[in-house]
């Protein structure tokens, strides 16, 4: 217990001591150091990290949707697809033939449509045992190829050759004569068998 006479004195002393307990001044530049450290931390936590989070979320959502779609479509057509095993009917099967005459085992109309769509795209990716007998795998002609064929059928052969080799265009008879004069006659040079030079 404190002495009642000295109590006000001790009170004052305690108040004074407590008042000075945290009357401290930090080192100069504290605010600058704090701001620098905040800027450094904020720079490290760049906004890209948030963008990547969004990217990851979007990618995972897309993957989940893709997986769901895959299972939905394959569960629906799964047992019927087992029947549609590809069997080449003839060695000279072409994609055009396959499109016209799909294998008999494909009976379902939806599968028939899918077969028509897929036949062209998958022909090149089939395993060797399942590939058609014709190589390269025939595909429908493009517009450019069709134009080229039309042009070739309506043009003389010499003209086509001349256009395809403009530097070796057919020469006139006089030029041919001049060349024969310039070239030496090689008929009299004896040919030694085994001489490869």
């Amino acid at each position: 217990m404190t002495d009642p006479n000295k109590e006000p004195q001790i009170d004052d002393m305690l108040e004074s001591l407590l008042a000075n307990y945290t009357s401290v001044v930090p080192r100069p530049g504290l605010e600058t150091r704090i701001l620098a450290s905040l800027q450094e931390t904020a720079a490290r936590r760049s906004p890209w990290s948030w963008n990547f989070r969004g990217l990851w979320a979007g990618a995972s959502a897309a993957a989940a949707v893709a997986v769901l779609l895959f299972f939905a479509t394959h569960r629906h057509a799964g047992p019927q697809q087992k029947k549609s095993v590809y069997k080449p009917t003839a060695p000279a099967t072409s994609v055009a033939n396959m499109q016209e005459h799909p294998p008999a085992v494909i009976s379902h109309p939806r599968l028939h449509l899918r077969w028509q769509v897929r036949s062209l795209a998958t022909a090149a990716n089939l395993p060797p045992s399942h590939r058609p007998g014709v190589f390269p795998t025939p595909v429908p002609l493009s517009e450019q190829e069709k134009l080229m064929l039309r042009y070739l059928s309506g043009t003389a052969r010499e003209e086509v050759i001349a256009q395809s080799h403009p530097e070796n265009a057919p020469q006139t008879s006089t030029e041919t004569q001049d060349q024969t004069e310039v070239l030496p006659d090689l008929a009299h040079i004896p040919q030694i068998p085994g001489n490869t030079r």
């Binding site: 945290t22 401290v24 504290l30 605010e31 704090i34 701001l35």
Partner: peptide
């Protein structure tokens, strides 16, 4: 930071 850095320092120091 401008308003409370000193107060924060004093709390930490206490």
């Amino acid at each position: 930071v401008a308003d409370y850095a000193q107060m924060v320092f004093r709390i930490a120091y206490s």
